[in-house]
């Protein structure tokens, strides 16, 4: 296979303050499918086109935000190799192994804290319980979908302080490419990085700001611009707290809308973008063009979009 090493963001674990309201949001409004609950009270979800057992996990807590992201790698051997490389990189702290089965249908996970303060995991095995259309002569989409019904969990955008250390870890140790970046001032100081481990334009992105371990959004993939507009209808119909959109990003070219779950964690659904190859030159945006870089239609920044994190 041509895509090797780290394959994709395989799960994100979010903290919510009212589990029932959160489950209703992520199933009825966003349109994920609940697949399991465990004895710790966690609820596990997947999007309809995902093969592996789960991709989103909610945990009841007294504060909002992200616990961690998990990255699926291509094999057990790669997991061992990358765990060693990450541990020896000098860039991470709090390394540990999480036993197989701690997440249902999931093998052992290597956990570490990256320079921006976020907790990340690598794992090689999660049972492929299958997507909603199956794999033999499948229909293009399944019946019975609810809400926005994205086909997959796509990426997260995270805020933290040591952007340089985190970019070094992802590019030099984990093998990611820098698809796009935002730089500031005549010295071209990097303030944002969009990182890809695949053909996606980003699998994770980071923005430099003073506090460690902040969560900006988890994003889910729709098919096209009309589905983004329909997501906007669902947001209004269900009186969901909207952030902004529908609009297009200059960065990544994505067609997008942002909104909040009932605990204030930001979600995005988007379509479009482009295919990223590892040999594609990095796209650079300068801070004087940050308005259209982030919001291509309005061409100006939005205070809440940049400031509100959990």
């Amino acid at each position: 296979m041509a895509l090797t090493g780290v394959l994709r963001p395989g799960h994100v674990v979010l903290r919510v303050m009212d589990l029932d309201k959160a489950v209703a949001h992520y199933t009825d409004a966003l349109g994920l499918i609940e697949v399991a609950r465990d004895d710790k009270g966690r609820v596990f979800f997947k999007a309809w086109d995902e093969a592996d057992h789960h991709s989103v996990v909610l945990r009841q807590a007294d504060e909002a935000g992200m616990d961690y992201m998990g990255w699926k790698v291509d094999s057990a051997a790669t997991l061992e190799r990358l765990a060693g490389d990450v541990k020896n990189s000098g860039l991470v702290t709090d390394t540990s192994w999480i036993a197989a089965g701690e997440h249902p249908h999931t093998g052992k996970r290597f956990r570490f804290t990256i320079p921006t303060g976020h907790v990340m995991e690598l794992y090689a095995q999660k049972d492929a319980t299958g997507c909603s259309t199956g794999y033999l002569n499948p229909e293009p989409w399944p019946d019975g979908l609810k809400g926005m019904a994205p086909s997959r969990f796509d990426h997260c955008l995270l805020y933290g302080d040591d952007l340089d250390g985190t970019v070094k870890l992802f590019t030099e140790v984990l093998g990611f490419g820098l698809a796009e970046e935002v730089v500031a001032g005549p010295e071209k100081f990097r303030i944002a990085a969009f990182l890809s481990c695949s053909n996606k334009v980003h699998d994770v992105a980071f923005i430099r700001q003073p506090m460690k371990n902040k969560f900006h959004h988890a994003s889910f993939l729709l098919d096209n611009w009309y589905e983004v507009l329909k997501a906007a209808d669902i947001i209004s119909k269900r009186k969901i707290s909207i952030d902004l959109g529908p609009t297009r990003h200059g960065i990544t070219r994505g067609e997008t809308i942002y909104f909040f779950d009932p605990s204030g964690n930001r979600n995005e659904v988007f379509a479009g973008g482009y295919i990223y190859y590892p040999d594609k030159p990095t796209v650079t945006w300068t801070d004087d063009q940050l308005g259209p870089a982030i919001f291509y239609h309005d061409r100006k920044l939005n205070e809440a979009f940049l400031s509100v994190v959990t």
Partner: peptide, 25 residues
């Protein structure tokens, strides 16, 4: 209040004006 969105480096402290993408050091 809205927090500043981007900040911090050894070589300077960057603040991005949220209304107009203006920057200052």
């Amino acid at each position: 209040k809205m927090a500043r969105c981007f900040a911090g480096s050894a070589g300077g402290f960057h603040v991005y004006g949220l209304q107009g993408a203006a920057s200052q050091t």
